[in-house]
Design a protein around this nucleic acid. Structure first.
Lengths: 333, 333
DNA sequence: CTGTTAGCGCATTCAG
DNA sequence: CTGAATGCGCTAACAG
């Protein structure tokens, strides 16, 4: 900017005024400044400006397990759209399911002074964020609650969703229902299992823990697939299976594709082409757009200075019943 | 930092030294500083540091059409991984296929002084980036070339891929092959059509433009789906179809699911569950990991100061033949 | 080992 | 309408 000022033969302040259209400038002077800007390829340094004005970096941080997982990338899109409404961009990163990496990312983003942080937590403890929260960086936890922190939270009703899944299968006449879940350390896994048990109870089905397998990681490796296959074999007595997340659902489908008739399946979270498989796959799904939008809006509200006690939102899950291939189904997302 | 210094009863420079472990500090002093840091919840301001050191923001910008599209989110993941190698984070944004938005995002990211920019271009002109390039912000175009700019480029061999697709279908005995493509303004569409024609020629098939439909946008809306349906109807004489991108493939599959027997299909770019559909869907696919990694590494190299003439990389596409459901297929990505 | 000074690029005073 | 001085939070270059 100093260079521009020199080139245009004016003071740096005048350049600043032109660049920010902050005050009337003599047209002739403005023209000279614009010419200099063009010639020098000047572009205002957003970081420096931010340092001076303290007006926020215009950035929201997003930490998910794996940005390549459609579940998260769809969430990312919803957050991006809502963030754009508030003139913000999104700095996204994958924790890879590593608690320490999650922590490093969160603190790194805070160091960059993001205007807010959206975290899909894999870690259990988040007290390290207490200082940042108090210092004014709003944080919202999505899909999974935080540990030991009084922050905004937007969850899906996993417990209710799982109960719905079981009820649905019971309606179809199933009595031997299995559950294939992710690591029990994950909050959603526990909630879904709770709902599963409640669903069984409500349907008058004895909960049979031999049909339940937890701790299935399904991030795409061969061994993950083998684990899911083994779990399916172990729970072979089940005539129907509830799968605890979209990765497990896909892994199960891949395993089952080899065999003959497929047990009835209800997956957690919708996925593209679920309706085009044979047979189609029913799911209980959270509304990712609502989840992401709500989270981003909470952040934006706090950024605007709104003060309210930490909000705990729980959004309902929806059963997408594809078990009757008779009428044409509505489309997947 | 000044606050910390006061609280610890030392100079600001000492705090700086402790924070950056830049020079030996008396253990006792260091302890006091650490205590103050803890107490005040101090975290070094990355923006200010960057302003002073001019050492780069540790950020790569990524501009895609739609970050929620699995094609792009997978690319995003590859770029994130490679960026992490160089200690960089990724600022990602969707252009929504809007040339002007693409431009705004690119310039905004430059204003934020990203260390490099990865663009999957929807626009045709990029001369507005010439100044930034010269000023030292490296830019790499992925999947589609840039217009009027001498920048690094990493493309897939779309032309070869399309020819492979046709050859494959010809091998299966098809002579009436259709092509459903995206907007002809998009470089990949043109290349793929070129390859399609070459494939036809090489297979001794007369190119029949009545079996070709371009300009199909398939970003998920109802009208998009209707357009693809109509195009499929128009090209009904074809016994086999090549679909020009993953969205069109899915839209076509959804349309065709209603009818009886499906024409043979070869899609551009792989998608999850392609192998589990009935019948499975063969595709020609680019290696998104290679695409993303190559792009990020080019950027990182230039960030390190490497000077080399703009590199034009073309990666081969791969035919994933799923037309013989006899042996078990390998998994989708 | 520690402190002082200056300045990164910009915007905000306050004077012309 | 325009400009000079001051400081955002931090670090580099020097002193002590």
């Amino acid at each position: 900017m100093t260079d521009v000022a020199r080139a245009a033969g004016v003071s740096i302040k005048t350049v600043s005024r032109v660049v920010n259209a902050e005050a009337p400038v003599h047209p002739g002077t403005a023209a000279k400044v614009h010419a200099a800007i063009e010639r020098l390829g000047f572009r205002r340094n957003a970081g420096a400006r931010n340092l001076r004005t303290g007006s926020g970096t215009g950035t929201l941080g997003l930490i998910v397990e794996d940005i390549g997982n459609p579940f998260y990338s769809e969430l990312h899109r919803a957050i991006e759209r809502a963030a754009a409404t508030g003139g913000r961009h999104v700095l996204a990163a994958s924790s890879e399911g590593d608690e320490e990496r999650e922590r490093d990312l969160a603190l790194e983003f805070c160091a960059r002074r993001v205007d807010g942080l959206v975290i899909i937590a894999c870690g259990e403890r988040h007290d390290y964020l207490a200082a940042e929260l108090k210092a004014g960086t709003p944080v919202v936890f999505v899909d999974r609650p935080c540990g030991e922190l009084d922050a905004d939270t937007v969850l899906a009703d996993d417990e209710g969703g799982a109960a719905m899944a079981v009820a649905h299968l019971a309606r179809l006449g199933h009595r031997e229902i299995g559950f294939l879940g992710d690591a029990p350390e994950i909050h959603t896994t526990r909630q879904r299992l709770l709902g599963f048990r409640r669903g069984c109870e409500e349907a008058g089905i004895d909960y049979d823990e031999r049909l339940v397998r937890l701790g299935l990681r399904a991030r795409g490796t061969e061994t993950d697939l083998a684990d899911v296959s083994a779990a399916l074999r172990d729970t072979g007595a089940a005539t129907a299976i509830v799968t605890g997340n979209n990765r497990i659902t896909v892994a199960a489908l891949r395993t089952l594709a080899a065999g003959g008739r497929r047990p009835e399946l209800v997956g957690f979270d919708d996925f593209e082409l679920a309706d085009l498989l044979d047979p189609p796959v029913s799911v209980v799904a959270s509304d990712l757009t609502a989840l992401g939008t709500t989270a981003a809006q909470l952040l934006l509200a706090r950024t605007r200075g709104d003060r309210f006690p930490p909000k705990k939102v729980v959004l309902p899950m929806r059963l997408i019943d594809r078990s009757h291939p008779l009428p044409r189904e509505e489309s997947a997302p």
